[in-house]
């Protein structure tokens, strides 16, 4: 059974992608197609586009 595709904006935190998705990087290469991924939305992550928790500091 497929789960509905969902994007959650965590308060003062990252975007969480859940479901059937594909993430392409700036060069068009596929970075991830996992079930759940955390993406940076504060601009400060050292591992963009993914969240690395830097927003808490």
């Amino acid at each position: 059974m497929s789960t509905p595709n969902k994007v959650t904006a965590i308060k003062n935190g990252p975007l969480v992608f859940e479901g059937n998705f594909r993430i392409k990087g700036v060069d068009g290469n596929v970075l991830a197609s996992a079930d759940k991924v955390y993406l940076c939305r504060c601009g400060k992550s050292g591992n963009k586009p993914f969240c690395d928790g830097t927003h808490k500091k």
Partner: peptide
Amino acid sequence: VNFSIMRNGPILAEGKFT
């Protein structure tokens, strides 16, 4: 759902989701 990281820009999202 296709998410594209735009160079020096946003995440573009194409597809149906909540």
